[in-house]
Amino acid sequence: MQHVDGNALAGPLAEFFSFDLTTAIARCSGCGAVGELARTMVYRSGAGTVVRCSECDQVLATLVETADRAWIGLSGISAIEVPRG
């Protein structure tokens, strides 16, 4: 099967990065719990923000911000569901 380069993601991924993430539903890759991101546990530290599963405490996501750059890690989320339409 042929592949195309990542520019092809622009359309499909725009949807994922343009909605209110707190309304999204995520699946924890540790325990399998499926729930709204708004119901996770969020820890803020100077180094960054850590989002943990409220069922099993696993790290779902990390956010690191500087004045000119930002990172999001989604190491503990196996899938995200967003509402459409």
Binding site: A47, G48, V59, T62, V64, T66, R69, W71, G73, S75
Partner: peptide, 20 residues
């Protein structure tokens, strides 16, 4: 490690500002 996977520098020398 944990923060190094998420934006922080692999080494982290403050004298050469290895922050991210």
């Amino acid at each position: 490690g944990f923060w190094e996977q998420n934006g922080y520098h692999l080494h982290g020398d403050p004298w050469t500002e290895e922050r991210y």
